[in-house]
Design a protein around this nucleic acid. Structure first.
Lengths: 142, 142
DNA sequence: TACTTACCTACCAGGTTGGTAGGATAAAAA
DNA sequence: TTTTTATCCTACCAACCTGGTAGGTAAGTA
């Protein structure tokens, strides 16, 4: 299940994309608009900065700004950054110890296909897709 | 992420399917073959019994037996029973309070599509598909 | 200097996960 | 009838995860 970390990160990026005008947007503004605790966002956002998705500047007039265009920012990247890994089972997560039963496992191929399905689905959606209003259900097709 | 509850339940069902001969199979045998704690399995299995997927009889000669044929037993049903819900986000889970932001939510449609994708994928696979040996990767296609 | 904003770390309550322990109950065999 | 076998049931537990809060520091602008 996707936790608030990933969901809030997406909302921040969508908010930054919808309000971008070249200058920097304070996270306080985003927190107010999205009705999310600023303090909590401050703990989620750094990973987006460190990965180069957004950039932040200190002081008055500072805030955050998207680095890439919204249509170059994939949902899959955001979720992998904030949720750590989208692996559906522990044995597929990166860094997991090799499973002794893998050679005989009846379910491994099912999980692997599902893993691919998850990544392909979210990599096929960008922040630009999520920005669009109206019937957004038709904006992206799997 | 799918927890051990769902994964062990699938392994139990596959084991019962692969060893079925009309009589009842003690869970101890399954636990030994699958190398899973019997006590832990005893806490996972009742939900499969109560839902009518398998039946158990007490006493000597007792054990568990599949009720339906393996090709009528869908992985999706097993996972929904053991994992509770396959909803990727809290707001889609059954029993979740209605979200005040739903009308304006930019991501709702994305989660709904993903939810459908998950259910369709696992409902398209049966225990019979998982039993097959060899290159099982080709047994089911999404 | 004063102010603003990003950035960093520690802490915490509540829930989930992955079990273990100890039995009660039912049915068949001795 | 006693014993054995097996399901079934409940309570407990340590470790971890989630969703925050609190309190500061660093950096940049007026």
């Amino acid at each position: 299940m996707i936790s608030t970390r990933g969901r809030y990160a997406l909302r921040v990026l969508i908010d930054l994309a919808e309000h971008r005008n070249g200058s920097y947007i304070p996270m306080k503004d985003v927190a107010d608009r999205q009705d999310i605790s600023l303090k909590y966002l401050e703990r989620i956002v750094p990973v987006l900065t460190q990965s180069g998705l957004i950039e932040g500047v200190h002081g008055k007039g500072g805030g955050y700004r998207l680095v890439k265009a919204p249509d170059e920012c994939r949902v899959g990247d955001v979720l992998r950054l904030t949720e750590g890994d989208l692996a559906p089972v522990a044995c597929l997560a990166q860094g997991a110890p090799p499973c002794a039963r893998a050679a005989d496992c009846r379910t491994l191929a099912m999980w692997q296909k599902f893993y691919t399905l998850i990544n392909d689905y979210f990599d096929g959606i960008t922040i630009a897709d999520l920005m669009k209003k109206g019937d957004i259900a038709d904006n992206y097709v799997i």
